[in-house]
Amino acid sequence: MTSDTVRAAPRPTAGTVPDKAPPRRRRLGDLPIAIVFVLPAAIGFAVFYVWPAIRGAYLSLTKYNVLTPPRFIGLENYRQLFGDHLFWNALKVTAEYVVLNIGTQTVISMVLAVLLHRLTRSMVVRGIVLLPYLVANVVVALVWFWMLDFQLGVVNQVIEWLGFDRVAFFGADLGIATIAMINTWRHMGYTALLIFAGLLMIPPSVYEAAAIDGASEWRTFWRVTLPLLRPVMALVMVLSVIGSFQVFDTVAVTTGGGPINATRVIYFYIYDMAFNRFNFGYAAALSSVLFVLLAGIAYLQLRLSRAGESDLKGA
């Protein structure tokens, strides 16, 4: 009974796997109606995403300072990029940030979502969790910047009052971790809500069945909840990774990339290149590399999460 239910739910996701050999007679399938459904989004997509992306990819092959026409220089920007120590440093710093941010954010959000789901139906609690997301990135960063200030911040005053030395939260050693923490604070409610929406899609009958089988909460979570959350978790992970690779505002208003490049994340570097140094062609090349990198990571993530699903079914 239990195993039947568990197996039944993920079955539709089999549809995500490209049909290996569609029957010839159904080659067009639902194509006409599908076009109607996709068309509005496709128009928005082509105009506001595809065109700029193609343009950006072209500009990465040019010397372009925004205000005068681009000059085609082939792969010169990319050649320069591989010898640019700031680019490699930015990648390293960004990777540190992503690991710290995703690590804390995913765990906290998952715990939070499950607690919200199991413990309370209170709208107030749910609303409070989402509150940080209502505040713009820049303001969140400024508020924390104040609270964590070495000399004036309330957090450092508490630390000193407890008898410890003050902490340079935005110094070379801790800067990137602090920025990761601030963004975890802003996004944990948001991410928890995404996971929570996934939890709501799981039919209660599944839990009832697990309860009848005498499974503990812990066991139910690992054996039932988590596997059923896979599509949502895949989404959450892909989105968070992409989002955290593009971290920018928080750095811009706090450390500005310093001290000594310790927080110069890739997107901040790109922005600086484009708008401060008018080196838009080079910025486009950096963006293209970032794009390829992200696409690769997302592809891997989706592959891995799909592989997981088929494991479950085979069990």
Binding site: F145, D149, F150, Q151, G171, A172
Partner: peptide
């Protein structure tokens, strides 16, 4: 004079001066 770690962990010279630091 404050170190780089301290000044990069601060909201700015004006506010810090205003706090008497």
């Amino acid at each position: 004079v404050p170190s780089m770690d301290i000044i990069s962990s601060g909201v700015g010279q004006i506010d810090t001066y205003g706090a008497g630091k």
